[in-house]
Amino acid sequence: MAAAAAAGAGPEMVRGQVFDVGPRYTNLSYIGEGAYGMVCSAYDNVNKVRVAIKKISPFEHQTYCQRTLREIKILLRFRHENIIGINDIIRAPTIEQMKDVYIVQDLMETDLYKLLKTQHLSNDHICYFLYQILRGLKYIHSANVLHRDLKPSNLLLNTTCDLKICDFGLARVADPDHDHTGFLTEYVATRWYRAPEIMLNSKGYTKSIDIWSVGCILAEMLSNRPIFPGKHYLDQLNHILGILGSPSQEDLNCIINLKARNYLLSLPHKNKVPWNRLFPNADSKALDLLDKMLTFNPHKRIEVEQALAHPYLEQYYDPSDEPIAEAPFKFDMELDDLPKEKLKELIFEETARFQPGYRS
C-alpha cells in the first residue's frame, strides 16, 4: 500500500510507478496490472468513496492506442447498470505532455475469474450472474457493438453480487458484411471463450460470437473449470467437437473457408456428449439454455433477447427493466489503419471533457 500523499506533496508512487492523480484522489492501494497499465484503488475526496484507477501508458504502440481509444469512446457513450462506466479521466493539459491516461471507475471487490478459483456457486448465484451478463449484453448488442472478449476476468463483482462487464478494448461495431482481413492475426481474445466460426472463417462476425462466450462462462460457473481449455488453435476446435459432436452437413455448409471445411470433413465422426453427463448436478433449465448458447452453427445460436426470456431466468426476466441503447454506435473511421500519432490526438480530444474549465 502506498503511503497517503500529504496535501501538495506531488504524485504518489505505487510499486515504483508514478500515479499522478492528486489532489482529488489519494490513499492509493495496488490492485493489479494488465498488459499496459496498473490498477489501484484510491480515495475520492470529492465523492467520499474509494474508486478504481487504471493507469494506461499506450502511446508507444499502435495496438494499445487503438484499444484505449475504443474503450474510452464506447464506455463514455454507454450507460447501463451492468456495464462499468467511466467516472473521470485524468491526463496532462497538453498533448505533448500526455504520456499516461488515468481512467477512474467504480471500485468492484472482485471478478468472476477470482471468485470461481475459490468458491463453488449455488444455482441461485449462477442464475443471477447469468441474468446480469445477458442484461448488459442486450444493451451492448442493441448499440450494434460486439464485445468480443467476454470471459470471467472481464466480469466485475461486488459483495452485493452486482455484476458489471468491463474491458471493451477489443470491441467492434457489428459488421457481418465487412471482410476484416487479418482478423485472426489481430484477434487476441482469450482462445477458450472463442466461437468456432472465428477459427473457421475470417469473413465478418456477428453478435452470436458473444453468446458463445457467455455459454462458455455459464459452463464454467457450473463446474469451476473452463469447458474448452484448448492449448492452441486446432486443439481448441477438437475440444469443442469432442463435446458438441461432429457438425451436420448443414452446419458445414455455413463454413465459407474450404480449407477449414475440408479439415472438419477429414475428422472421424464424434457423438455429442449429453450435458447432464458433463454437469450431473446442474439445473435442467440451465443445461437447456447452455445447449442453445453453445450451438456450433452461429445462425442457430440463441440471441440475447431470447436467452433473457428463457425459463431458467424467469424469476428475473423483465423486458421493461432491460434497457437498450438510445442509438446504434458508430465509429467515424476504422481505427485499425491509423498511425499511433493520430490515435493519440483522438484520445486527447475524447478525454477533453474531463479537463478543468472544459467548454463543449
Rank of each mutant, 00 (worst) to 15 (best):
Q355T: 02
L278G: 05
C216E: 12
P196R: 13
N27Y: 15
L155M: 14
I256Y: 07
V214L: 13
N281K: 13
A309F: 02
L338V: 03
V173D: 05
I103V: 05
N82H: 10
S360N: 13
S320W: 05
A9H: 04
G182K: 09
V104S: 04
M333K: 15
L244C: 04
V214P: 12
L130E: 08
R194L: 12
D149L: 11
E349C: 02
L155R: 00
A309C: 00
S246T: 01
S320Q: 05
H120N: 13
K138V: 12
P176T: 15
G8M: 01
D177R: 10
L69W: 01
F59D: 01
W275H: 09
D100C: 02
L163E: 03
K270T: 05
E322F: 02
Y43T: 01
I255M: 08
D162M: 01
Q105Y: 09
Y139G: 11
L267W: 00
S246K: 01
V273Y: 04
K203V: 13
A9T: 07
L241E: 10
D111V: 14
P58I: 02
N45Q: 09
F279A: 00
H310S: 06
D251I: 00
L134K: 04
L222I: 06
A2K: 00
E303D: 15
E250C: 05
T110M: 10
V101G: 09
E326G: 06
E33V: 10
P323M: 06
N82V: 10
M293E: 02
V173Y: 07
F354P: 02
G204Y: 09
G8C: 08
Q132C: 06
T351G: 07
E250N: 00
I56R: 08
A3T: 12
Y233D: 14
K114P: 12
D318V: 14
L163F: 05
N201W: 07
I31V: 01
V101K: 10
L137Y: 09
T160H: 06
L346K: 11
S223T: 14
D106E: 15
G215L: 11
L157P: 13
P11S: 13
Q105N: 08
F279K: 03
I53K: 01
L112W: 01
R277S: 15
Q249S: 02
D251V: 13
T190D: 07
E303Y: 02
S320V: 10
E33W: 00
K272L: 06
R353K: 13
F59C: 11
S202G: 10
G10S: 11
K117R: 13
S213V: 04
L146H: 07
F354W: 11
R70G: 03
M333N: 11
S284T: 14
L241Y: 09
R148Q: 14
G8W: 06
P176G: 05
K207L: 11
Y205E: 13
L244A: 01
L130N: 08
D336L: 05
I165R: 05
Y113E: 07
C166S: 15
L289G: 04
N154T: 14
A35M: 11
L157S: 13
L121K: 09
K48H: 13
N45C: 12
Y233V: 06
I86F: 15
V173I: 08
G8A: 07
H125F: 06
I211L: 13
T160Q: 07
N45G: 09
E186H: 08
L156A: 09
K330G: 07
G245S: 08
D175M: 11
L134F: 10
E322K: 14
L338E: 08
V46L: 11
I256L: 12
I86L: 09
A325S: 14
N238D: 00
C65W: 02
N27C: 09
I140P: 03
F183L: 15
E334Y: 03
Y193E: 11
L112M: 14
P274C: 07
E326F: 02
I165H: 10
D88L: 01
A174L: 08
Y131M: 01
I165Q: 10
Y36K: 09
K259E: 04
K114R: 14
F59A: 02
G136M: 02
T159D: 10
S208T: 14
R261E: 11
F296Q: 10
T159E: 14
G8V: 15
C166L: 07
L244T: 01
A260M: 02
L200K: 10
E350W: 00
R261V: 07
L137N: 11
R277E: 09
T68D: 02
Y25V: 02
A143L: 11
E326K: 14
A171H: 09
I83H: 02
P311S: 13
V39D: 02
I324H: 01
D288L: 11
M98K: 15
L200V: 13
C65Y: 13
S57D: 01
K207I: 09
N253Y: 14
K272C: 10
Q119D: 03
L121T: 05
D179Q: 10
L121I: 12
D210I: 04
V104P: 04
D175L: 12
N271H: 12
A42F: 00
R50L: 10
G169F: 03
D210P: 02
K300P: 05
I83V: 05
Q306T: 02
N158S: 15
S41D: 02
R194E: 14
Y102S: 08
F354A: 07
V104W: 04
R135F: 01
H232L: 15
G16K: 08
T190W: 06
L170D: 08
A307V: 04
V214M: 13
N87L: 03
N87M: 04
V173L: 13
I84F: 15
F183D: 08
I90H: 01
G215A: 13
L184W: 11
M38D: 12
D162S: 01
Y312M: 10
D337G: 00
L265V: 02
H310L: 15
V273T: 00
N257L: 09
D106N: 13
E250W: 00
P319F: 08
L244K: 03
I31C: 05
T63W: 13
H125D: 13
N144E: 08
V51N: 01
L258T: 06
G10A: 10
Y263Q: 07
Q97S: 04
D251S: 02
A189D: 03
I256S: 08
Q236M: 09
L146M: 11
K270M: 14
H147F: 05
P274T: 14
I72T: 02
L308D: 04
R261L: 15
A3H: 04
E109H: 07
H232A: 06
A195Q: 07
I255V: 09
L146P: 05
P280R: 11
D318E: 14
P356S: 14
D251H: 01
Y233R: 09
D179K: 07
Y30E: 01
Q119K: 09
F228E: 01
K292A: 07
Y358A: 09
R79N: 02
L116Q: 14
V39R: 03
H141R: 09
A35H: 03
N271I: 15
D177I: 10
Y128P: 02
G357H: 04
H178Q: 14
L289N: 04
A92T: 12
Y36C: 12
L28R: 05
G169W: 02
E341S: 05
P247Y: 02
I31F: 14
I302C: 06
S223H: 05
I126E: 13
L287S: 10
L157H: 07
E341I: 01
I255L: 12
V145N: 01
P298F: 01
I103D: 06
L112P: 09
E303A: 06
P11F: 01
D336I: 01
I347Y: 05
T181A: 12
M221E: 05
L258S: 09
L107G: 09
I126Y: 06
L157Y: 12
E326P: 00
Y312C: 09
R191F: 02
V46A: 01
P226F: 02
D336F: 01
N238Q: 12
V304R: 11
D111R: 04
K164R: 12
I227L: 12
K259V: 03
C40G: 01
L234D: 11
A52V: 11
A2V: 00
I302Q: 13
L121E: 10
V214A: 10
V214Y: 12
G242P: 07
N201M: 07
L237H: 09
R172H: 01
D100M: 01
A352S: 13
